[in-house]
């Protein structure tokens, strides 16, 4: 699972560099994000602009990360395009996650 990482202030921008985010990537994704979830509160932006396809396992992995985030953490998703945005809407995950258009929007959405 290729994930690009950079920081804007204390906010961590993670960019999923896979076009296909399916069952075969779900576990690797959860493991890769594990180290961000072990300390104190974090502010994460997850950029899915390079993702062309996500299945239920991929969404499940996102959900499990959301649930494991330390108290006071924030996660904002951005860059979703069709059919990924359709998947979020169809599964009602668009109401579970905060979703922004761009990384900049996502960064400004994060409160701290």
């Amino acid at each position: 699972m290729q994930i690009g990482e950079r920081k804007v202030g204390d906010k961590i921008i993670l960019e999923v560099l896979e076009s296909h985010f399916g069952a075969d990537k779900a576990l690797a994704f959860k493991n890769a994000l594990g180290r961000h979830l072990e300390g104190g509160p974090v502010s994460l932006v997850l950029d899915l602009a390079k993702v062309d396809f996500i299945d239920s396992s991929g969404l499940g992995a996102l959900l499990s990360v959301l649930k494991r985030m330390p108290k006071g953490s924030e996660l904002v998703i951005c860059g979703t395009k069709e059919p990924v945005s359709s998947m979020f809407k169809l599964t009602r995950m668009d109401r579970v996650f905060t979703i922004c258009k761009t990384v900049d929007d996502a960064v400004s959405t994060l409160s701290h």
Partner: peptide, 17 residues
């Protein structure tokens, strides 16, 4: 989608919906 884009139900694993 009305626009014409589509998801394959098996491939996207959305059989639970």
């Amino acid at each position: 989608d009305p626009s014409g884009s589509s998801l394959d139900i098996a491939e996207a694993q959305i059989g639970w919906l």
